[in-house]
Design a protein around this nucleic acid. Structure first.
Lengths: 294, 294
DNA sequence: ACAAAAGTGTTCCAAGTACACCCATGG
DNA sequence: CCATGGGTGTACTTGGAACACTTTTGT
């Protein structure tokens, strides 16, 4: 089969010039989430749990000394997902993890250096399996507690259109570092078509559009925890039902009553014969039932 | 604030060389779905509905004369989403549409010409609003009926691992063109971690990895129709409940009973005073209730 | 009249929600 | 003994699935 120039496929490929056009750079950014357990000095009280994200400090312009989602350029000889795994390993050296592609961010001016298109991934890890390693050109890496607050929610109704504008504040912090951003989410419904848009209104100590990436990762997590297994990726192989409940609560930002929660997740777990140690009244340990959706 | 070389941000940006590393090309591919109504000569019988996708014929190597998802390179001065809208408009010239980012495909050897990373989008359109336009380097564009058949589903169970391998055949066809592919989906669960992989086993008359893109678009559609509004994007502003039911059935590949379906979508629609015309027994027209989830 | 589709009601079951209660244990 | 959390049962409500039935209209 010949093309319009009378070339065979081999001839076409041999003369093809891939450098003809200017190209954007491509990076991967990996949101690494974990649950942090805050041990309580009073044994009778339950240990608290917090949702955390791993951020790295930028060592160069732009956003020098601000915090960013770990990531880097995709190499020419590695798949996109391989690049994400590589970035993840450079930070955490985990063996077995959950990694999911989230979204690709491609606005023209996301990065002041040049056109960069970035595919974001989300990793959920069990903190006991990982040690944070400082990367090469990274000055520092740290786990940040996450707080999301809705500041304002406004709805405007027209005949065939409705616009919902929601302003949220994302705050991430360690014991002595704070970074934050104010984000506006606009959901517009015109007739039967809905569109959604994210904007950064203001930000402090957070780099690029990373607050948007973090926010959309959190929202994806909230959605997926309801109908998938992802909660278990944040826990060790064996866990108590109270721990599992805490994970659901900290991600969804709401509370459940114990009997109802246990019925809700009944099919997703299997009893073991083991019990936790060192607690007030040791609770039974459970493990994930991989056949729950059959 | 100075970096390690003692540069200010402006100095850094002025001397920054974006061409240092080799870069992949970036494209967008837009899956354009629509519902086709097959009018029935017998007025007393209900018109049939089919799910269709718009494909274009490749005019050059590789995969010359095979069919492909419409798409093209992202320009340096346009956002990723803008590029997707541009591609969509080049094919359909629609005014108001649903467009959603699906997934970014970044395997090293997706394209024999060079390294291409492609972000796929999904558009759902109402066929009455669009005329197909042949693009510039496109020989032909056509609506294809879609059929998905599960060929085999095999499950292997180990102590801590289970592997589900599902083989499906995707067949797209017009009156005189057929293209098809066999795809294997592997879902592996190790302990509490699940991973999923798509492979093309064989394909005929379909270009690149586009069968994978089409398959994952179809699956996304099936998932989203259950908890979102997307079905309405495929219909005109006013529709009968039977039409809406047909859309659900054709996307999910299963049937509903009328009373149950109507209760299921009761909250999502609003009655109008109008009735359809020309039917055996004209049915009431409904429209989308944009406030259904309040 | 009858075929085909529009349109409505009733019953059953499963999953979620609210709430009430007893049991075990460290301080 | 009592605070704190572990563990269980019961009743109510909601949404889906199955099925039975009446009404309207072109041929």
């Amino acid at each position: 089969m010949l093309n319009e120039l009378g070339q065979t496929e081999q001839e076409f490929l041999d003369t093809y010039n891939p450098g003809k056009y200017e190209k954007p750079s491509v990076t991967v950014d990996v949101l690494i989430f974990a649950i942090h357990t805050v041990d309580n000095p009073d044994v009778r009280k339950l240990a608290d749990k917090k949702l955390q994200v791993l951020l790295v400090k930028r060592g160069n312009h732009p956003y020098i000394n601000n915090w960013a989602i770990p990531g880097g350029f995709v190499k020419m000889d590695e798949d996109l997902e391989t690049a994400a795994f590589r970035e993840l390993k450079e930070e955490t050296s985990v063996d077995n993890i959950y990694l999911e592609q989230l979204y690709t961010w491609g606005d023209v001016n996301r990065d002041p250096r040049m056109r960069i298109i970035s595919t974001s991934y989300m990793a959920l890890i069990n903190k006991k399996n990982c040690k944070i390693q400082a990367g090469l050109d990274i000055m520092d890496a740290n786990w940040f507690d996450i707080e999301v607050k809705t500041i304002e929610e406004k709805e405007t109704e027209y005949t065939d259109t409705s616009i919902v504008e929601k302003t949220v504040e994302i705050l991430v912090k360690t014991n002595d570092i704070v970074a934050k951003a104010k984000i506006k989410e606009t959901i517009k419904v015109v007739n039967r078509f809905s569109t959604s848009k994210l904007e950064i209104l203001e930000q402090d100590n957070i780099s690029f559009d990373h607050a948007k990436i973090l926010y959309s990762g959190l929202m994806r997590m909230r959605n997926k925890i309801e109908y998938t297994d992802i909660a278990f990726s944040l826990l060790p192989n064996e866990f108590t039902l109270a721990e599992l409940q805490q994970v659901y609560e900290v991600i969804l930002g709401k509370t459940f009553t114990k009997p109802n929660f246990q019925r809700k997740i009944r099919e997703k777990v299997l009893k073991t014969d083991k019990f936790e140690r060192g607690a007030h009244r040791p609770a039974r340990l459970y493990r994930f039932n991989k056949d729950w959706n059959k």
